[in-house]
Write a protein that binds this DNA or RNA. Structure first.
Length: 479
RNA sequence: GGUGGUGUGGCGAAGUGGAAACGCGGUGGUCUGCAAAAUCACUAGGCACGGGUUCGAUUCCCGUCACCACCUCCA
């Protein structure tokens, strides 16, 4: 079955056909690094993480580019947000950029988000942006005003095609014309001339200044992925004006289509309202990670389709946590039994595994339907638990096949099943010591010395080690 | 005002023109020294509301209402 994706550009679900067979070139709008990231960013980048992981799992060679915006992203006041932060922190702009770029990567690493292959920065691609602006001016799609170089939206008939906006139907605030050399209110800045005291500025054919926000994505995607590439991703909240401007600039400059497929992620909300800096209703990723495991945050996000909004609450996270625990509980038990299972025998569970794998793959092939894929893992977990609790001896080939299925689908693709077998010396030692204590407690229980047995269990619990007695022995898990 | 989207059980959330996934929660069993986990059964007679098409609609069409996002900085 072919992979199908919902292409926002045409508002329909279509078969995914890459430009070059077996190869996917993909660009996702990255963050502006002027503050710590919050869970809204997590939803976006975890969603694309799974898209990239699944494409690779499906055999595609993916080149994943995600930019870092470190210049040109202006506040409503017209002030560059990086500069504002730098002034507040009495730091240089590049210190701010470096600080928060590192923070961003640290957060993404902690969430298990696979790093993009290339993370280009806007400030490091000024020549490429200038070059593109020059082409736009030559072709009559941009003009030089006294304060900036603007893209002339009336020169590009298709402007608005992604977001279905018609210029004449928009509420055009007069504010946007105030004090600028724009010909049309919807014209947007490609290059902004900087006053002398402005800290971030470069030489350009039009005078010293800095690039506008939108041009960076056009210039950098072209540089690394070509004039036409396969997938462009981002948050739905940036469909206008940012994504719209990108398309217009790129197609006007290059004369060929920009991205073939547009995949946009729904918003993370809090009490139905978008999580955002300006509303102040945000939870940083660092704060969230202090309360929930990364796998739990991922599971929470996978419980709704990436295109839909999802509402954040502690209740929802806790529900996700319980659901996640059920899955990894089965995995833990499987790995535990694998330690001393008989080698002989055939995989008697192959049919169940392949049926659930097929469900999982069918779900993901249908526009990366993670909620449905997760459901397949959940029903598989029911089957696995039944098998493991049946009281029968299960052979190694069967257990290994179960383990491999979870590691592949739940681990490699979704990133919610941690790797087994901690190989570090510390973990081996810890594991050995815990098992030693389990043996000691077993002895006490055999002697009906329940006080001693409970003491071992209670003290281990205080250390975050939870013991679970089963008919076939005691297992443990770390809190 | 324009554009796009959403409205499904106590909560979260999939999905389909022909008996409503999955998870959480709840109730009652089983297992168990206790605890924890697991497991079994039950838990929406209806999918915002009103029309229409159809043998049949939650699913398609029209209308209405509500909420959200974007049109102004945010993935």
């Amino acid at each position: 079955m072919p992979l199908r994706v919902y292409n926002v550009l045409h508002r329909e679900k279509v078969d995914f056909v890459p430009i070059h067979e077996g190869k996917v070139n993909m660009y996702v709008c990255g963050p502006t690094v002027y503050d710590h990231s919050h869970l809204g960013h997590a939803k976006s980048y975890i969603s694309f993480d799974v898209i990239v992981r699944y494409l690779r799992f499906s055999g595609y060679d993916v080149l994943y580019v995600q930019n870092l915006t470190d210049v040109g992203h202006l506040l409503e006041s017209g002030e560059d947000r990086i500069l504002k932060k730098a002034r507040q922190a009495s730091a240089t702009p590049m210190q701010i950029v470096e600080t928060y770029a590192r923070s961003y990567f640290a957060d993404m690493d902690a969430l298990g988000v696979v790093r993009p292959d290339i993370s280009p920065r806007a400030s490091a691609h000024v020549p490429e942006q200038i070059e593109m602006i020059e082409v736009l001016i030559e072709k009559g799609h941009a003009y030089v005003a006294e304060d900036a170089v603007y893209f002339d939206v009336t020169s590009w008939r298709e402007y608005g095609k992604l977001s279905n906006r018609r210029l004449e139907e928009q509420e055009t605030g007069s504010r946007r014309l105030k004090g600028s050399g724009k010909r049309n209110p919807e014209d947007f800045a490609l290059w902004i001339l900087a006053p002398e005291e402005h800290i971030l500025q470069w030489n350009s054919p039009w005078g010293r200044g800095y690039p506008g926000w939108h041009i960076e994505c056009s210039a950098m995607s072209r540089k690394y992925l070509g004039e036409t590439f396969d997938i462009h991703g981002g948050g739905i909240d940036n469909i206008f004006p940012h994504n719209e401007c990108e398309i217009a600039q790129s197609e006007a400059a290059n004369g060929v289509p920009f991205a073939n497929y547009w995949l946009l992620v729904g918003t993370l909300t809090v009490d139905g309202q978008k999580m955002s800096k300006s509303l102040g209703n945000y939870t940083t990723i660092k704060d969230a990670l202090a309360r929930y495991r990364p796998e739990v945050i991922r599971t929470f996000i996978f419980q709704s389709h990436y295109t839909n909004p999802i509402d954040f609450s502690d209740e929802a996270l806790q529900a996700a946590e319980r659901g996640w625990e059920r899955i990894v509980g089965a995995v833990r038990l499987t790995r535990d039994k694998l330690r001393d299972a008989p080698d002989q025998g055939e995989n008697t569970f192959a049919d169940v595994l392949s049926a659930h794998r097929a469900q999982f793959v069918a779900a993901m092939d249908d526009d990366f339907n993670a909620p449905m894929a997760l459901a397949a893992l959940q029903t598989l977990t029911g089957e696995v638990n039944k098998l493991l609790n049946s009281g029968e001896v299960i052979n190694k080939p069967t257990l290994a096949a179960i383990e491999a299925t979870y590691s592949e689908l739940g681990g490699q693709v979704l990133g919610i099943v941690p790797q087994g077998d901690a190989h570090s010396i510390d973990m081996k030692l810890t594991d050995g010591l815990i098992r030693l204590l389990i043996d000691v407690r077993k002895q006490a229980r055999a002697e009906k010395n329940f006080a001693r047995a409970d003491q071992v269990r209670d003290q281990l619990k205080a250390l975050g080690v939870l013991l679970e007695d089963r008919a076939d022995g005691t297992t443990y898990r770390l809190e």
